[in-house]
Simulated scan of single mutants.
Amino acid sequence: MKEMKMPTSDSYYESLIESLKDAEHAGGYIGAILEEKDPEPALLRNAIRKVIEARIRMNALSESAKEHHEKVDKMLTESGGSEIYSLVELLEALGFRLEVTVAEIELRAESESTDFAESELSPEPASL
């Protein structure tokens, strides 16, 4: 993963979204959340939303990615991500690790535009 310096003049959120435009950084960001020993599904959901927002700002979110995001977001909302975290735990018990890496092909936007508004992707308030 590339070393990235956070600018002091921008907000943390804007700096994070800017850093997530880098595919390696975005993959590492999601991967780190999947590796948590005490998983918090809301964090995974928000991390994916932030990566989606970065792609939208790059005009690099395909219609296919949008559709898959809607399905995964619904699953994470309804089940709390139990399926994903169960898979991670099973793989660890078998001696494997799930890793998020950059695909060999270059990600590019399809000709269709996205219907996501930035307000839809804003981080949800954390509940304590």
Rank of each mutant, 00 (worst) to 15 (best):
K66P: 00
E83N: 09
R49V: 00
E124V: 03
G95Y: 09
E3D: 13
S119H: 11
A42D: 12
I84C: 05
K66M: 09
A103V: 00
E99L: 01
D22M: 01
T77S: 13
M4A: 09
K74E: 05
R108G: 06
K37Q: 13
A47F: 06
E83L: 14
D73S: 13
G80V: 00
L20M: 06
A32V: 07
E70M: 11
P41H: 12
R108Q: 12
A32P: 08
T8Y: 09
S79I: 02
H69T: 00
E63C: 03
P7F: 10
K21E: 09
S64G: 07
I84D: 07
L94F: 13
S62K: 10
E92H: 06
A65S: 13
R97H: 05
R49F: 08
A26L: 03
K50M: 10
S86Y: 11
M6N: 02
S15Y: 03
V100W: 04
L98I: 11
A109R: 14
S15A: 14
L43R: 10
A93H: 09
R108E: 10
R108H: 07
K2L: 12
P41W: 12
I48C: 13
A65Q: 14
L91N: 15
I33R: 11
I17E: 01
I56D: 01
K5R: 14
I30N: 02
L121T: 11
I48H: 09
P123G: 07
I30Q: 02
K66E: 14
K21H: 10
K2P: 15
S111A: 02
P39D: 05
A32D: 15
K5E: 13
L16M: 12
I56P: 00
K74D: 03
E53A: 08
H69Y: 15
A23S: 15
V72T: 12
E70C: 06
Y13T: 05
N59S: 09
I33Q: 08
E83R: 08
G81H: 03
G80T: 01
E118D: 07
T101F: 00
P123N: 13
G28Q: 06
E35Q: 15
G31Q: 10
L87S: 01
E104D: 08
K71Y: 05
Y12P: 04
G27K: 06
S86E: 09
E104Y: 02
E83W: 07
E78N: 15
I30C: 00
S62Q: 06
L61M: 07
Y13H: 10
S127I: 06
S119C: 07
E112T: 04
D73T: 01
A126R: 13
E120L: 04
E118I: 15
E112D: 09
N46W: 07
E83D: 12
I17Q: 05
I105N: 06
S11M: 08
D115V: 04
S86I: 00
K2C: 05
P41Q: 07
A126W: 03
A60G: 02
D22T: 02
E3K: 11
R97A: 07
M75I: 14
Y29A: 00
H68V: 02
A117C: 04
S19E: 13
S111W: 01
A109F: 08
E124K: 15
D73F: 13
L34G: 04
M6E: 03
D115F: 06
I33Y: 10
Y85E: 04
E83F: 12
A117T: 07
E112F: 03
I48R: 04
L98A: 09
E35L: 03
H68T: 12
S64R: 11
E112A: 10
S15W: 05
L16F: 01
M6Y: 05
D38R: 14
